[in-house]
Design a protein around this nucleic acid. Structure first.
Lengths: 154, 154
DNA sequence: ACTCATCTTTCGACACTCGAAACCTCCTGT
DNA sequence: ACAGGAGGTTTCGAGTGTCGAAAGATGAGT
């Protein structure tokens, strides 16, 4: 295959990969009976080691404070997160994932890690280094293009 | 860096890449004053060489026929798509992207292609082959995991 | 103390999606 | 021919998620 062809194939493969990510997220949300927003919020809560305040969650989700309140409400009702008063600042509340959420997360994401690791095991370290470099470059390009679009405000 | 470390780095880089894709899509939608669904629909209309019927669009978007009607309404109102009677079947309508849509698409996506090609130019064909292989493997893993989640229905 | 800023919640409105029913149009069997 | 059903899109009413603005509560500075 020529280099030009390869470049094109990489581009389309990237698009397809993106779609598969999307499909997986959709499947995960359905499996957990959550909407995409609530799943994103739960991921954020599970990712960090310390609980997030409602405001931090709002910023991270790029959602209005009002909407964030209802996100927390829904997660709380599903017993996946809980509100805690911030001991240092009683205006704030902290939102923490529950143990149930952690278990559920394991069920959903652990197999992905296993399958991913297995799939990567076949590559040499040199190859992995190339892949890693590519992933970072690709991300950089995407972010550059995203800022180009957001900063162009005529 | 050890191989294990590399594998972990690749995993997190993939997550970040996914997020950057999402950010770009969001930026593109905002730039075009469309919601994400309408943008997806427009992408589909622009991707194929022939117009899509409302039903095909509905299936491709995984949206109800009712919702698809309003998607088409919105795109039509924005002068980005138009309804055409199917000459062979008067029950159906075909939805086609307008020239305006094509121009707008160029503005948004052409620079991405250029930047992407430039970024990939530095790799050798061997490296590109590895990257391409990886992308396909990654997609396969994601799809497998997605089906695992969707098929598990107790 | 008072005032202003910070943080979350409540409220009313709007946008997107869905299922069900309606409406045309095509196809099939008689 | 044509009656009846299947295919394709739209309309309607309801449900859910999001927002901006205002309210409520607490903190910080003067």
């Amino acid at each position: 295959m020529s280099k030009d062809e390869l470049v094109r194939e990489v581009a389309t493969s990237l698009r397809l990969l993106q779609q598969s990510f999307d499909a997986f997220d959709e499947a995960a949300a359905t499996a957990l009976k959550l909407n995409r927003t609530d799943l994103r919020a739960l991921d954020l809560l599970l990712a960090g080691s310390t609980p997030l305040s409602a405001g931090q969650l709002s910023a991270a989700l790029k959602l209005s404070p009002a909407a964030t309140t209802t996100v927390i409400d829904r997660l709380e009702r599903a017993r996946l997160a809980g509100r805690i008063q911030d001991p240092h600042n009683r205006r704030r509340i902290l939102v923490a994932a529950t143990d149930t959420a952690r278990e559920v997360e394991q069920d959903v994401y652990a197999p992905v890690g296993v399958a991913g690791a297995k799939a990567l095991a076949g590559y040499t370290t040199e190859q992995l280094a190339i892949i890693l470099d590519f992933l970072r470059v690709a991300r950089h390009v995407q972010e550059e293009q995203a800022t180009r679009l957001t900063s162009a405000r005529p």
